[in-house]
Simulated scan of single mutants.
Amino acid sequence: MSKVMITVAPTGGMASKAQNPNLPTQPGEIAESVYKSFKAGACIAALHARRPDDGATCNADIYRDINERIRAKCDIVINNSTGGGSSGDMLIERQDGLYESSFEERLKGCEAGAEMATFDGMTFVDVHGGKEILVITPPSRCETLVKRMTDRGIKPEWEVFAPNHILQDVTRLIQKGYDKPPYYINMVLGADKGFQGAMPYSHDVLTAMVAALPPQSIFCVSAIGPAQLPATTQAMLLGGHVRVGLEDNNYFSKGVLATNEMLVERTVGIAKALGLQPTSPAEARDILGLAQR
């Protein structure tokens, strides 16, 4: 049987408990949700950190606390975000009335001993909580970020939202030697109103992005809200891997709030119905070229 890696993204940097009380935000909650998702069939955990007041952060001490709690429970592959979020430690108020996402804070996501880290190389404007937030990642910052990862033995998860993200910085940095094959590229689709420059999900958009991948790549698909279910199902049909979780989607079905493990369990069921076998963390490390624990 073919194998599929299922990633759980339990928290994210934007959603709140007001939107879904099942959202885990504190280290103990996140670790427990990841463990339940691991038992349900997830092999990778894509993690965001939150402060005690639930504000977004990349604080290495908080990430380290989350990572150690997860490690005490299971051997799931740990992937810490360097994207941060739209609140808390991530925001710098500018004199022009805009806000800017702190690049120095984002770099801290590489300092907690994760095996992987998300590489977000985009420059865009986010609107969240009434604030216009500039996320500025020009080529020089892209190189600083990926070098921070590789210097610490962290494999990048190249996160892309549109074909140009693949064809520009990701391909350029791969060609400069900042990653070894297989290159793991996570495509995020379906974000509302083009958030982070994301493309809407459709069959044609996803197949076009798969066609744009550099040689020796493997891909994962994440999708926002109602796009999550069809996009991840198509990804598996195309031979890719998938990410599900409350970072991307609060609902199991219309009007029914989800938990992370509910979304993982459904994805495992679909994978098996398609003749695919969810991988264990050890198998995922073999696929990704990571050292075994």
Results as ranks from 00 to 15, higher is better:
residue 169 D to A: 15
residue 44 I to V: 14
residue 258 A to D: 04
residue 218 I to T: 05
residue 109 G to M: 01
residue 173 L to V: 05
residue 267 T to K: 11
residue 41 G to C: 04
residue 55 G to I: 03
residue 40 A to Y: 09
residue 72 A to N: 13
residue 242 V to I: 12
residue 256 V to N: 10
residue 108 K to F: 01
residue 177 G to H: 07
residue 11 T to F: 00
residue 13 G to C: 11
residue 194 G to F: 10
residue 10 P to C: 06
residue 258 A to R: 12
residue 107 L to Y: 01
residue 28 G to C: 05
residue 7 T to K: 08
residue 237 L to I: 00
residue 3 K to H: 11
residue 258 A to M: 07
residue 174 I to H: 09
residue 114 A to S: 10
residue 250 N to W: 10
residue 261 E to C: 05
residue 41 G to E: 03
residue 286 D to R: 15
residue 229 L to E: 15
residue 22 N to H: 12
residue 9 A to F: 03
residue 219 F to M: 08
residue 136 I to M: 14
residue 262 M to Q: 14
residue 70 I to L: 06
residue 46 A to D: 15
residue 156 P to M: 01
residue 22 N to P: 02
residue 191 A to G: 15
residue 60 A to D: 05
residue 242 V to R: 09
residue 169 D to H: 15
residue 93 E to N: 09
residue 221 V to I: 05
residue 65 D to M: 10
residue 45 A to K: 03
residue 52 P to C: 09
residue 84 G to Y: 05
residue 68 E to A: 07
residue 200 P to Y: 08
residue 92 I to R: 11
residue 271 A to M: 06
residue 207 T to Q: 08
residue 252 F to D: 05
residue 288 L to T: 02
residue 23 L to R: 02
residue 1 M to C: 10
residue 186 N to E: 11
residue 229 L to M: 13
residue 175 Q to Y: 13
residue 139 P to L: 04
residue 149 M to S: 02
residue 169 D to W: 15
residue 29 E to M: 09
residue 145 L to S: 10
residue 129 G to I: 04
residue 98 L to I: 05
residue 260 N to W: 11
residue 6 I to F: 10
residue 125 V to M: 07
residue 248 D to R: 11
residue 91 L to D: 08
residue 235 A to P: 02
residue 293 R to C: 09
residue 137 T to Q: 13
residue 180 K to N: 13
residue 257 L to C: 07
residue 55 G to F: 01
residue 50 R to K: 12
residue 15 A to C: 09
residue 17 K to E: 07
residue 96 D to A: 06
residue 107 L to V: 01
residue 253 S to V: 06
residue 250 N to M: 12
residue 169 D to K: 15
residue 136 I to W: 15
residue 224 I to W: 13
residue 219 F to N: 09
residue 74 C to M: 04
residue 144 T to N: 13
residue 210 V to D: 01
residue 58 C to K: 09
residue 241 H to V: 00
residue 60 A to Y: 00
residue 222 S to L: 11
residue 33 S to M: 08
residue 234 Q to S: 08
residue 57 T to P: 01
residue 72 A to W: 12
residue 3 K to Q: 06
residue 184 Y to Q: 14
residue 5 M to Y: 03
residue 202 S to Y: 07
residue 281 P to M: 03
residue 126 D to I: 13
residue 222 S to R: 12
residue 238 L to M: 06
residue 287 I to H: 09
residue 79 N to G: 09
residue 84 G to T: 10
residue 91 L to W: 08
residue 232 T to A: 03
residue 160 V to S: 06
residue 156 P to H: 01
residue 64 R to W: 04
residue 163 P to M: 03
residue 85 G to Q: 05
residue 19 Q to F: 10
residue 201 Y to Q: 04
residue 37 S to E: 07
residue 101 S to V: 06
residue 250 N to D: 07
residue 197 G to V: 03
residue 232 T to F: 01
residue 199 M to L: 12
residue 180 K to S: 11
residue 197 G to F: 12
residue 275 G to N: 07
residue 168 Q to M: 14
residue 270 I to R: 08
residue 174 I to Y: 12
residue 186 N to F: 00
residue 283 E to Y: 08
residue 158 W to M: 02
residue 196 Q to D: 15
residue 219 F to P: 01
residue 68 E to C: 10
residue 197 G to H: 08
residue 285 R to F: 02
residue 203 H to S: 11
residue 24 P to Y: 07
